[in-house]
């Protein structure tokens, strides 16, 4: 049984179709990446899975349970954590408070366990430890991204969905973020990664899907996608010209 399975999911903004019969699956322990140009429907796919948007039709199963149309806060309680685009750090709360609130989906967690999880989060992102008591808005983009991922991990998710974690970050920070994503999977968390930076995403992914105007056009392991002419042309920066 796949951890997450979408079967022919359709979603729209008013009269405009955003997703057209999207079917995909994520197996336990995988890093799966969802690629595509701006407006292809990557973010909409994640928003529909996490309950921020209701699909118009189709089925979404997480751990075998139908979650299509359920509320966002009930879905995260099942262990599906969504770190949205733009990081969305609570600006008026400190870094520590932001990360702690990531555990809101777990009920009655003993304080000692929360402290352990918090230490583990700072262990993954030692760079933000010194900002633990600084308000969220004072951090740089890269630091905020680390807080956002740490907050997502506090939910102890079975599946972590990351939307454009590299957006707006300096190249050296991007590498660091991707190394961390690979490390998160090593610890046993499945990852569904939405990215525009296709090369980076495919360098750590087990499989990828490519979305184009709301439809999935290609699916396969990184090598397949990297060699696919259509994909290269559209998302990976040009065709390989013979000779």
């Amino acid at each position: 049984m796949a951890l997450l399975e979408l079967i022919s999911v359709t979603a729209s903004y008013g009269a405009v179709d955003a997703l057209n019969a999207v079917s995909l699956r994520v197996e336990e322990g995988e890093i799966v990446t969802l690629l595509g140009a701006n407006g292809a429907g990557k973010t909409t796919t994640l928003r529909t899975i996490s309950g921020l948007m209701k699909p118009r039709s189709g089925s979404i199963r997480f751990l075998g349970k139908e979650i299509a149309g359920a509320s966002a806060n009930s879905i995260v309680r099942l262990g599906l954590s969504h770190v949205p685009e733009g990081r969305r750090i609570f600006p008026g709360l400190t870094v520590r408070e932001n990360i702690l609130l990531g555990s809101s989906n777990r009920s009655r967690v003993p304080k000692a366990e929360l402290d352990r999880d918090l230490d583990a989060a700072f262990g993954i992102f030692p760079d933000i430890l010194k900002f633990a008591d600084a308000p969220g808005w004072t951090l740089s983009g890269g630091q905020q991204q680390m807080v956002a991922v740490a907050r997502g991990l506090m939910a102890r998710p079975k599946l972590l969905m990351l939307d454009e974690p590299s957006l707006g970050l300096a190249p050296i920070i991007v590498q660091q973020v991707f190394r961390t994503i690979a490390a998160i999977r090593e610890r046993g968390t499945t990852v569904l990664l939405v990215e525009q930076n296709a090369h980076m995403a495919l360098s750590i992914a087990d499989r990828g899907y490519v979305l184009e105007t709301g439809r999935l056009i290609v699916e396969g392991p990184p090598a397949t996608l990297l060699n696919n002419e259509e994909v290269r042309a559209a998302y990976l920066g040009g065709r390989v010209t013979a000779g």
Binding site: G51, A72, N73, R77, P84, F90, G92, L93, S104, R106
Partner: peptide
């Protein structure tokens, strides 16, 4: 109190964390 503050700062993000908005 922190959850109430989080809700007032970003309701959608709060609901994604499992805070009952």
């Amino acid at each position: 109190g922190k959850k109430l503050q989080a809700t007032s700062q970003d309701k959608e993000m709060a609901s994604l964390l499992g805070i009952p908005v």
